[in-house]
């Protein structure tokens, strides 16, 4: 359904620019209360000046560090746990339904328990991030194991490969295309979990700051925070997508 012969990205950019223009106009003309929705230019300006303050950058780094730490733990651990469960018929039978049940429970209700168990520091955020992301990795690993060809495993065995070698040289590349889809979702869940934990009880992090700004009615900063977090999320998504494209070439 391409309208005229305009490239998609032009249309997409036009929509974003249009959205910002409507926002700007609505706020400037007073159609929307500027106290509730400051002009787009104001918000972007606030975001830029926030990024220039050392204090905010420290909060931002805390959030990024927690997110990366949780991500680096949740993705491989989830994938390997899922693989180990899926490859053992008994474990599969017993554990798969349990993982599905836990996956369907909203993770946020466990947050108070995480605070009791881990306090409100760095470790608690990471633990909650891992908890938020690990189940999607496990469930996807269950599915991804199906794409490992038995013949390839037999070749590895015939060549005398150890379990670790087989994991690295057969399971990982076979499962990667399916798992990468989940990696993106895992990042979203992980990031959500960490921001939530920061807003709920924390002394640092972007989530903590945004919580404070909301309570103090600092709408311009709140929106600037949303903007910065969104950009972060998009950046990550693009990195994973670039990885996916690189893996595509042999398929």
């Amino acid at each position: 359904m391409a309208l005229f012969a305009i490239p998609d990205w032009v249309v997409r950019s036009a929509l974003v620019v249009g959205f910002l223009a409507v926002w700007e106009l609505g706020s400037r003309t007073g159609m929307v209360d500027p106290r509730l929705l400051p002009a787009a230019s104001t918000v972007i300006g606030t975001a830029l000046s926030l990024l220039e303050t050392a204090a905010f950058r420290a909060h931002l780094w805390t959030t990024i560090a927690q997110t990366m730490a949780a991500f680096i733990i949740a993705v491989p651990v989830g994938a390997i746990l899922g693989l180990l469960i899926a490859e053992r018929p008994y474990a599969s039978e017993v554990l798969k339904p349990l993982v599905f049940f836990v996956f369907s429970i909203p993770k946020s209700i466990f947050l108070p328990m995480f605070i009791l168990a881990f306090g409100i520091g760095f470790g608690q955020k990471v633990a909650f991030g891992v908890f938020s992301a690990i189940f999607i990795m496990m469930m996807t690993a269950f599915a991804a194991v199906e794409s490992v060809k038995r013949e390839h495993l037999m070749v590895a065995r015939a060549m005398g490969a150890s379990f670790i070698q087989t994991l690295r040289s057969v399971y990982a590349p076979s499962m990667a295309p399916v798992l990468l889809e989940a990696v993106r979702l895992a990042m979203i869940f992980n990031f959500t979990g960490i921001l939530l934990a920061e807003m709920y009880a924390s002394r640092s992090g972007v989530g903590n700051q945004m919580g404070l700004w909301g309570q103090n009615f600092m709408i311009d900063r709140l929106l600037a925070g949303i903007l910065i977090v969104s950009v972060l999320a998009i950046l990550f998504n693009e990195v994973v997508r670039a990885l996916e494209t690189r893996l595509e070439h042999w398929r």
Binding site: E151, M154, V155, A158, S169, V170, S174, L247, R251
Partner: peptide, 12 residues
């Protein structure tokens, strides 16, 4: 040495 029925090469 062993050679299987299908070549069973790793596509990646």
């Amino acid at each position: 040495g062993v050679v299987f029925q299908e070549a069973n090469l790793f596509p990646w």
